[in-house]
Amino acid sequence: MNHDTYPDYYIADILRATKTIALVGASPNAERPSYRVMAFLLRKGYKVYPVNPGQAGKEIQGQTVYASLADLPEPVDMIDVFRAAEALPALIAEILELEPLPKTIWGQLAVRDDTAAASAEARGINVVMDRCPAIEYPRLIG
């Protein structure tokens, strides 16, 4: 897939089909974008699992924080990535070990690695990079 642009229907379909989200890089700091996006997603009715090894066992916005994706209590539809772009290849390798695989990997603004994305897409996972669901949801769904 060309990750320079996405058809609106592609992103809208992902946002409508997604029910559960693992938010990798979740922060308890209300000033951080990951905190604000998590709050938005929770308000829109998504079930969000924060993932941050430094905060494991604590709570962010009333949700238990998990150390890793492998620790999540249930499979998720989407993994929303708030990590540096350089971390994406290793994270996607970790994601590809999950069973079952998520339907979508979503890289936040400035989080992009086309080679890593291709490995996920080869396994049937939808990939969105350099976008924010808190921007796309109001634009496409309302």
Score class of each variant (00 low, 15 high):
Tyr6Met: 11
Ile11Asn: 06
Asp13Leu: 00
Leu15Ile: 04
Thr18Ile: 05
Ser27Gly: 06
Pro28Thr: 06
Leu42Tyr: 14
Lys44Thr: 09
Gly45Ser: 12
Tyr46Ser: 03
Lys47Pro: 08
Tyr49Gln: 03
Val51Thr: 11
Asn52Lys: 03
Asn52Thr: 07
Gly54Leu: 12
Gln55Thr: 02
Ala56Ile: 00
Ala56Leu: 02
Ala56Pro: 04
Gly57Tyr: 02
Ile60Pro: 00
Gly62Val: 07
Val65Arg: 08
Asp71His: 07
Pro75Ala: 05
Val76Asp: 07
Ile79Phe: 00
Val81Asn: 00
Phe82Gly: 05
Ala85Phe: 15
Ala87Asp: 13
Pro89Trp: 02
Ala90Phe: 14
Ile95Ser: 02
Ile95Ala: 05
Ile95His: 05
Leu96Gln: 12
Leu98Gln: 15
Thr104Asn: 09
Leu109Trp: 15
Leu109Ala: 09
Val111Asn: 07
Asp113Phe: 00
Asp114Gln: 08
Asp114Cys: 05
Thr115Ala: 14
Ala116Ser: 04
Ser119Arg: 15
Ala120Glu: 06
Ala120Gly: 12
Ala122Glu: 06
Asn126Arg: 12
Val127Asp: 01
Met129Val: 10
Arg131Gly: 13
Arg131Met: 12
Arg131Asn: 12
Cys132Pro: 05
Ala134Pro: 06
Ile135Ala: 08
Glu136His: 10
Ile141Cys: 11
Gly142Thr: 14
